[in-house]
Amino acid sequence: MNLKTSSLTTLSAAVGLLAAVGTSSPLLAAPLLQFVDNMNGSVTLQVTPDAGLLPGSLGAETALSVQGVGVNFTGVSIADTTVWDTANPGANPFTGGETNGLYTNLAANEIFAAYGSAVLNSPAATNFLTINYTGAGTILASGLVAQQGTNFNNLSASVGVGSSTPQLPTIQFVDNGDGTVTLQIVAYESGSTGSELAFSVDVGDGLLITSAVIADSATFDMANPGDNPFTGTVTNGLYTDFVANQVFASYGSGILSPGTYDFLTLGVSGNGTLNATGVVSQQGMLNSGLSASIDLVPEPTSALLLTVGVVACGCRYRAA
Rank of each mutant, 00 (worst) to 15 (best):
A244I: 06
A244P: 00
A244Q: 15
Q246M: 13
Q246W: 09
V247G: 09
F248G: 07
F248P: 05
A249G: 13
A249L: 08
A249R: 01
S250K: 05
G252A: 13
G252T: 07
G252M: 01
S253P: 00
S253V: 08
G254Q: 07
G254K: 10
G254L: 06
G254E: 08
I255F: 09
I255C: 04
L256Q: 02
L256A: 05
S257P: 04
P258N: 08
P258T: 12
P258L: 04
G259S: 06
G259D: 11
T260I: 15
T260P: 01
T260A: 14
T260C: 02
T260F: 00
T260D: 04
Y261V: 04
Y261R: 02
Y261W: 02
Y261Q: 03
Y261E: 03
Y261N: 02
D262W: 00
D262M: 01
F263S: 01
F263Y: 15
F263M: 08
F263P: 00
L264D: 10
L264I: 14
L264G: 06
L264F: 06
T265S: 09
L266H: 11
L266G: 10
G267M: 12
G267C: 12
V268W: 05
V268M: 07
V268N: 09
V268K: 07
V268G: 06
S269I: 15
S269G: 08
G270Q: 08
G270V: 11
G270N: 07
G270Y: 02
G270T: 11
N271I: 02
N271L: 07
N271R: 13
N271Y: 13
N271V: 06
G272K: 09
G272E: 10
G272Q: 12
G272T: 11
G272Y: 07
T273H: 03
T273I: 13
L274T: 11
L274Q: 09
N275Y: 11
N275E: 11
N275Q: 09
N275V: 13
A276E: 05
A276R: 10
A276Q: 06
A276G: 12
T277G: 08
T277V: 05
T277C: 00
T277Q: 07
T277M: 02
G278Y: 03
G278L: 06
G278W: 02
